[in-house]
Simulated assay, not measured.
Amino acid sequence: MPFVDSAEECYDYIIVGAGASGCVVANRLSRTNKTLLIEAGGLDSSWEVLMPQHCGLTWGDERFSWPIMSTPQVHLKNSKSTTAYLGKVIGGSASINTMCWMRGNQSDYDSWASLGERSNSAPILVPVACVNKSDNYYYGMYPNNKKEMAQRDWFVNHTGPHTSLGLDVAAIIKTDKKLDRPNANFMFVDSLYGPFPGGNLFQRDHSETPGYMCAVSNAQVFSRGSVTLQSSDFKDEPLVDYDMFSDNRDVQNAIEGVKVVRQIFEHEALSDDVQTVVLPPPHVRSEQELEGFVREMVGSHGYYSGTCKMGSYSDSMAVTDNQGRVWGVGNLRVVDSSIIPDAPSGPLVSVCTMMAEKICDKIQEPQQQF
């Protein structure tokens, strides 16, 4: 990675953070402007980053990620804390996550057009549909000699099972047709993760037990958390409080999502493939039992948004306008997931990429006020 030779060097733009949005902005602005991109992490050239099948190896590795430990979540079983990992590498979290490129649902963005008061421009985001395709392998079911072959295929030719994350099917659905928006996000994984219960759901279980699972997440989140300072010492970690399940609608949506997945796995079409349903345990059936289950098992995907939400000047919670310009501060924009006013129903990398492209369009317009 190139370094700045002189502290006295001048730049047209300084971009702090080489995540998905930062890389897009740097790419666009550096074509015609002298631009400095600052990133705490290193290059994304390590095999741990490049190999899709083992992206989980980067989580918790201080070379590639920032561990984000929440405060105790009082609405979860035993008030447990949860840990998620944000990218500390070129590409940011997009370099270490599960490569899920999902635009969410159109209804996620319906309110964005009215945000901001500085221009009468169209919404900054026009969602586009993209598909990541890969061969469908079932690495978790391979015997050891096959795994050795798979490793050789990857390191020699970048082919074989390691090119697939094993997360090839996802869905955003309504658990009730009467709902006006989807409320559940499903990600089907062709191997077992663990440890269970109550641990890190994204830590691969290295046992040889064949199986598959579905991670359920809420496509609408009603609980609201906070990020605050722990002290006046900048070296101290911030206090991250999701306040998970503080709104009971989130609890109910999680329960309904689990019910739908259970119906899928118990369907007769899968009867030849499913020998045992491990979670939820078969005896967990009542509403009360399912509520206890989700309060114990819930964790964080690490898709953070909304801490610098965009909105109108009259909105006391808004930090930026709809072009990322910080209210009351000149020559400063925020262009990342923190300005998203409401969390989309899917992963954030596609949203951040398109949002950065659209904001760069505005920055590069003639006579544009930065």
Rank of each mutant, 00 (worst) to 15 (best):
V278G: 06
L279N: 11
P280D: 00
P282D: 11
S286G: 06
S286N: 02
S286M: 05
S286Q: 04
Q288M: 14
E289T: 08
L290I: 03
L290E: 00
E291M: 14
E291Q: 15
G292V: 04
G292Y: 08
F293Q: 01
F293C: 07
V294T: 03
V294E: 03
R295Q: 02
R295G: 05
R295I: 08
E296P: 12
E296D: 13
V298R: 05
G299A: 13
G299W: 15
G299S: 15
G299H: 13
G299M: 12
S300Y: 05
S300L: 15
S300D: 14
S300G: 09
H301W: 15
G302T: 02
G302I: 02
G302S: 02
S305Q: 09
S305V: 12
G306K: 05
G306S: 03
T307E: 06
C308Q: 11
C308M: 13
G311S: 02
Y313R: 12
Y313N: 11
S316N: 10
M317C: 10
A318F: 05
A318I: 00
V319W: 02
T320L: 06
D321K: 01
Q323L: 08
G324C: 05
G324I: 02
G324Y: 02
G324T: 03
G324N: 04
G324F: 00
R325Q: 06
R325P: 01
V326M: 08
W327H: 14
G328T: 02
G328V: 05
V329L: 09
V329D: 03
G330Q: 15
N331Y: 08
N331K: 14
L332T: 08
